[in-house]
Amino acid sequence: MERNLSHIALFAALIAVLGFVPQIMLPFGVPITAQSLGIMLCGTVLGAKRGALAVLLFLLLVAIGLPLLSGGRGGLGVFASPTAGFLIGFPVAAFVAGLVTEKAPMAVGWAAGLGSFLGGVITLYAFGIPGLALMLDKSLPEAALMITAFLPGDMIKVALAGLVTHSLARMRPGALLSRN
Results as ranks from 00 to 15, higher is better:
residue 87 L to P: 12
residue 129 I to S: 03
residue 69 L to S: 04
residue 15 I to F: 02
residue 86 F to C: 10
residue 46 L to E: 07
residue 140 L to A: 05
residue 172 R to T: 13
residue 60 L to E: 13
residue 48 A to T: 10
residue 14 L to D: 12
residue 40 M to V: 06
residue 45 V to K: 00
residue 48 A to Y: 03
residue 112 A to H: 03
residue 167 S to F: 12
residue 175 A to V: 14
residue 63 A to S: 14
residue 177 L to D: 12
residue 155 M to T: 15
residue 92 V to C: 10
residue 86 F to A: 03
residue 9 A to G: 15
residue 46 L to Q: 03
residue 147 I to Q: 08
residue 13 A to P: 10
residue 72 G to M: 14
residue 107 A to C: 12
residue 23 Q to G: 09
residue 120 G to E: 03
residue 178 S to Y: 00
residue 166 H to R: 14
residue 131 G to K: 00
residue 152 P to D: 15
residue 21 V to K: 04
residue 83 T to E: 13
residue 142 E to V: 09
residue 71 G to H: 04
residue 84 A to D: 10
residue 145 L to C: 14
residue 6 S to Q: 09
residue 111 A to H: 03
residue 59 L to W: 10
residue 80 A to M: 04
residue 63 A to D: 15
residue 108 V to I: 12
residue 46 L to N: 03
residue 113 G to N: 03
residue 28 F to Q: 07
residue 24 I to R: 02
residue 86 F to K: 02
residue 133 A to E: 05
residue 114 L to F: 08
residue 71 G to E: 08
residue 94 A to P: 12
residue 179 R to P: 11
residue 45 V to H: 01
residue 151 L to I: 13
residue 109 G to C: 13
residue 49 K to R: 15
residue 137 D to W: 04
residue 161 A to P: 07
residue 1 M to P: 15
residue 172 R to K: 09
residue 176 L to R: 01
residue 104 A to S: 11
residue 156 I to N: 08
residue 169 A to H: 01
residue 127 F to P: 07
residue 70 S to T: 09
residue 21 V to Y: 03
residue 96 V to R: 00
residue 36 S to L: 06
residue 162 G to W: 00
residue 170 R to V: 14
residue 39 I to C: 07
residue 73 R to C: 08
residue 62 V to A: 02
residue 74 G to Y: 05
residue 180 N to S: 11
residue 160 L to D: 13
residue 37 L to T: 03
residue 60 L to R: 09
residue 77 G to N: 04
residue 162 G to N: 04
residue 180 N to D: 09
residue 15 I to H: 00
residue 95 F to K: 01
residue 99 L to C: 14
residue 81 S to P: 13
residue 147 I to W: 01
residue 152 P to S: 15
residue 41 L to H: 01
residue 75 G to L: 02
residue 173 P to G: 09
residue 171 M to F: 13
residue 117 F to V: 02
residue 78 V to Q: 05
residue 176 L to F: 02
residue 151 L to E: 06
residue 126 A to R: 00
residue 74 G to S: 14
residue 58 F to V: 09
residue 98 G to D: 07
residue 109 G to Q: 07
residue 70 S to E: 09
residue 31 P to C: 09
